[in-house]
């Protein structure tokens, strides 16, 4: 499978990457080269093989339902949460007005 410019434009839009015509033109052959390379995977016989689900055999640990047990993963840290915000007002993050 190879991608054309329209497809790359659609992917770029899905990925929220603004790309002008020149950038798209440059990207098309690069992506096709990479896709051509990875497509050799299709040759592998995977009959009866389950996709890998865990790198190292282990199952999911669960946390206790305790609020703010560890300050690094708890709430009540609004200043830290907002400290790097490009636009923060009245305790909120600001974004361009959204019309729903």
């Amino acid at each position: 499978m190879s991608v054309d410019k329209a497809t790359v434009a659609k992917i770029a839009s899905l990925a929220r990457l603004r790309m002008d015509d020149a950038a798209l033109d440059r990207m098309v052959p690069e992506l096709n080269q990479i896709l051509g390379f990875v497509e050799q995977l299709g040759q592998v016989d995977v009959t009866g093989v389950e996709p890998m689900t865990a790198v190292i055999a282990q199952s999911l640990r669960l946390r206790d339902d305790v609020v703010d047990a560890d300050p690094l993963t708890g709430g009540g840290v609004r200043d830290a949460v907002l400290a790097n915000a490009p636009a923060a007002e009245h305790g909120f993050f600001g974004v361009p007005k959204v019309i729903e």
Binding site: D65, V66, V67, L72, T73, G75, R78, L82, H90, F92
Partner: peptide, 23 residues
């Protein structure tokens, strides 16, 4: 639940904006 699905921040209704938000 007391805490969120994947973090330890509280779930109570009506808190100050972004007060119950973990990193």
């Amino acid at each position: 639940s007391n805490a969120k699905l994947f973090s330890g921040a509280a779930t109570a209704f009506g808190a100050e904006p972004n007060a119950q938000v973990s990193l």
